[in-house]
Simulated scan of single mutants.
Amino acid sequence: MSHKSHFRRSLEADPERLHFAAHSHHLWPDVSFDAHVQAWLDAARLADRKWEQIFAEIIPRAQGHIARRLGLSDPSTIAFAPNTHELVMRLFSCLPRERPLRVLTTDSEFHSFARQAARLEEDGALEVTRIKAEPHASFTERFAEAASKPGWDMVYLSHVFFNSGYAVPELARIAQGVSNETFFVIDGYHAFGAIPVDLSAIQDRVFYLAGGYKYAMSGEGCCFLHAPPGYGARPRDTGWYAAFGALEDAQAPGAVPYARGGARFLGATFDPSALYRFNAVMDWLDAEQLTPAALHAHVVRLQEQFIEELGKETLPLREHQLVVPLAEKSRGQFLTFESRAAADIHQRLLAANVVTDVRGDRLRFGFAIYHDIEDIGRGVARMCTALG
């Protein structure tokens, strides 16, 4: 399966580049360019009235795409924001202020949550318990046991860990043990669009965060939250868009009104062009029958070929350095090598126009549908020159 022709603009922008960082900044397919232009044209044509079209057509389409990919029965539970940090803060604003919040999470969360939680912890606003993600083989058991204890205000967990690629299995099992009063939040940024996700069994119990920057191929500015009914009815961190469609007669007299569904988590004015891109990419994926399962199967084949080719060379990256081995099926869309030389290898590869990314002593390679087997061979050959 090769879909390079659909990424012509991105690939021709730097023909010599081997972009093995789809897990970081996925290249955009050509349909996103036309969609971005359409957003401009609609703004020129409609001016102030563009928001009527965005809320009546663009947002519902995007909600539908997400609901189908996550197994959600009600697309209206989806709220959008420019980034996940904004949504995390809105979730925190639903919880009590008069005491420190008790939060259970892991030591492997992305910075949008980890940094903010650490800062609030400094001020005594949070009491955070962090479960080690590794060893992965025992993680679900250890985290489920901790999550089942009473008293948590929030349980926050990545579906796929950004620093390893390990995909947490049995999310439903973990959710079943969490108190009904607790906010259970799943960060799905490295899962959405990369691996099959089915939240149907737990959709009324979990929040789910993700966005367009990675495997949704839509770029910045299109993040979303699935907000289950009955949780966080009135976030204190709120923007005026959260009042759209609110039924004031259903609110307490004099109270700030909120919309129903996920719209209660909306903020204020945002750049809607990301939603245009997102819808165009999702429409294209549907037309090509490129499901998350099909995309993942393609990437797994490339990963296996990459490891096979590495094994033929004397490079400072070996299969035994994989944080999540190929044999582990609970794996996301990238490979992570652990090496004290990770930063140096990253820089040397970048100088050879092989794009990867590094997190401390971990080097990540992410393949995508704009790669084929020939790219793997070219990449390894170039790595031999850069690292030999």
Rank of each mutant, 00 (worst) to 15 (best):
L41T: 12
S218K: 07
R130H: 10
E248I: 12
S179M: 00
E220C: 01
H320I: 08
P135A: 05
Q203K: 11
H298P: 03
A233Q: 13
E52H: 12
S112A: 15
V168K: 08
Q347S: 13
I186P: 04
V168A: 04
A210M: 02
F244S: 02
W240K: 13
L95V: 10
E141H: 13
L295D: 00
P196F: 01
P82K: 08
R260F: 03
P316F: 06
Y231I: 01
R382W: 09
T336A: 14
P235D: 08
F192C: 02
Y208I: 03
A13Y: 05
F265T: 06
R301V: 01
W240Y: 14
E170A: 14
H26E: 06
R234D: 01
A381Y: 01
M89E: 15
S24F: 12
V355G: 00
L363Y: 02
R362L: 05
G211A: 08
A255W: 04
T106G: 08
F162L: 04
R115Q: 13
D74A: 11
A297C: 01
G377W: 09
F184N: 07
H296E: 08
V178M: 05
A233W: 03
E304M: 09
F55Y: 15
P229G: 05
N353D: 15
Y213W: 10
I307D: 06
G239L: 06
Q251Y: 01
F337M: 07
W240F: 12
E309I: 02
N163T: 12
Y213I: 09
V88E: 05
D237K: 14
L46P: 07
A81N: 09
K312F: 01
L285H: 10
D123M: 10
G193R: 02
A175F: 00
A117D: 07
K132F: 01
L70D: 08
W28I: 03
G221D: 06
I195P: 06
V380S: 09
G124C: 09
L349M: 14
E121W: 05
R102T: 08
H346D: 14
V197H: 01
G262A: 10
S10C: 06
V355W: 04
L104F: 01
E122L: 13
D204I: 02
A259S: 15
D286W: 03
Q333S: 14
S148Y: 02
K50M: 14
P235A: 05
F192L: 15
A125F: 01
M154C: 12
E98C: 02
F92M: 12
A172Y: 00
V354Y: 03
R301L: 07
A35F: 02
T105G: 06
S73A: 15
V88L: 13
A250I: 00
L120P: 04
F7N: 06
H65N: 11
G124Y: 11
A43F: 06
F162H: 15
P29C: 08
S273H: 11
R264S: 11
D271H: 12
S339Q: 07
